[in-house]
Write a protein that binds this DNA or RNA. Structure first.
Lengths: 257, 257
DNA sequence: TTATAAGTATTACATTGTGATACTTTTTAT
DNA sequence: ATAAAAAGTATCACAATGTAATACTTATAA
């Protein structure tokens, strides 16, 4: 609609991106009018944009239902992303090793604004679908990985984050109390690792260790998700934590402990 | 530059997508002029497009080097893709199980035009980076997965593909002889699985089984990559093939054998 | 230090995207 | 089965928006 920084801002492109962004978990396949409704763009605009995206291979079109779907190009972009993120090539072999060593699901998450995003996932146990695919974004404050990252920041900064950043309830036991989260992070800062239960899904325990950046603050974390039917916190601390920390340190650009 | 289907084609959007596509394995971080050079767009256009992509969160900009990089949004798109592809949720738990069962790297690939694209990867052994990340596109004819898929097509059609589709040499032993490939596919059609050596990387053996579609032709395959230092073809046939086939059939929408 | 290249900003112009409208097809309700 | 409503498709006149040239600034190389 309205342009931003004027003459250096290409409206038509921004609208096209808006169309891409309209697809998500809950809207994985949309008709023209659904896209129009979701983006707030008008019918004609969506018609042209979707058509262009289709011709350029960014949208699949079902000739039967006339619905649009993401195309393989979306995965190709992820491929390109991976080559651009120096942490990924560095981490991958170590993450694989770790996942085989302990036989549990290992993830690497990076901070993305006020959320964390899963960049690598190595599932070893069947679990719910969303936990097995990359690119998932979750409120940083609600995840062990996010808290582990924040814990490496100067206290004033992470406290500001705890005060401001978004929270969302995923299970009946997701912590929504910001004071409680602050206490948790203070503790993580001391211990050097984060542990959390029932935050994203019930009966799941998350264990996360920060990947230190060269400036002493983490921008990523290695995380391990296990079922509370097979593990308890003490077992995790004993069996998993040492190797998890070792892996996180080995990935850390400076290797700081 | 030139517009396509006229009035339903938004040039500015297409150019913006061109910019996104310019990033790849070899160009993971580019300056304005590099983007201009690679896309063939002129300086001013790239300036505006890159700026817009940046403002919309699709390009990261290093304030030091002024170079642009893919952003986390590229992974979010992959996340959306996964929800749109019905095969992935269906396959994921079975792929995980398989990878744990045999302890070797399991992939799922789909046909994407004349290439295959890796949609899921479950590495269990450290290997070269490109083999551990999703979204990689390879000539279908050069891969066990691609051939397994083609082998389910009517003979005339796959023979046409063998004649026309692109080939690329990855190792000194990549098969570039189309007759040889045709023989290989004929055999796969009989056997119901594909096996190949040294195609993408030396000392690697690939074993692939088609995931049958409802129309009797495959559009995806389950694939297993192993090192020839630890395996030979007979061992693979004995130990891995049965479970691989079982998995592929379990994923197949119709469950056809 | 100068020269060359790359990035940034501005502007005048007309190409290109806009959104209204009308037409066709599909879906839903009666 | 038929009508009504909704969704998809096509066309068009207008001017808003993207264009590319140019000039200015900042980096990099000679």
């Amino acid at each position: 609609m309205t342009r931003k920084t004027d003459t250096l801002y290409v409206n038509a492109l921004a609208k096209g991106l808006q169309v891409l962004r309209a697809f998500d978990e809950a809207n994985s396949e949309m008709s023209l009018s659904q896209i129009a409704a979701r983006t707030g763009l008008d019918k004609s605009a969506v018609q042209r944009l979707a058509n262009t995206l289709h011709l350029e291979g960014f949208l699949e079109k079902d000739s039967g239902t006339r619905r649009f779907r993401p195309s393989h190009a979306w995965l190709e972009l992820a491929y390109a992303y991976y080559w651009s993120d120096p942490l990924v090539p560095q981490a991958m072999p170590k993450l694989i090793e770790l996942s085989q060593q302990i036989g549990e699901t290992i993830n690497m998450a990076e901070l993305s604004g006020e959320h964390i995003i899963y960049v690598s996932r190595l599932p070893t146990k069947r679990s719910y679908f969303a936990a097995t695919i990359i690119g998932r974004k979750l409120p940083a404050l609600s995840t062990s990985a996010g808290r582990a990252i924040l814990s490496t920041w100067p206290e004033a900064e992470w406290r500001a984050a705890v005060a401001d950043w978004p929270l969302k309830s995923f299970t009946p036991r997701t912590t929504l109390d910001r004071d409680e989260i602050a206490d948790s992070i203070a503790r993580i800062a001391q211990d050097g690792y984060a542990i959390s239960c029932n935050q994203m899904i019930l009966n799941e325990i998350g264990l996360a260790a920060p990947i230190w950046g060269p400036d002493g603050r983490a921008r990523a974390a290695v995380q391990c998700s296990v079922s509370s039917y097979r593990w308890d916190e003490d077992m995790l601390r004993e069996k998993v934590l040492p190797v998890l920390l070792e892996t996180a340190n080995a990935i850390s650009p400076m290797g700081q402990g």
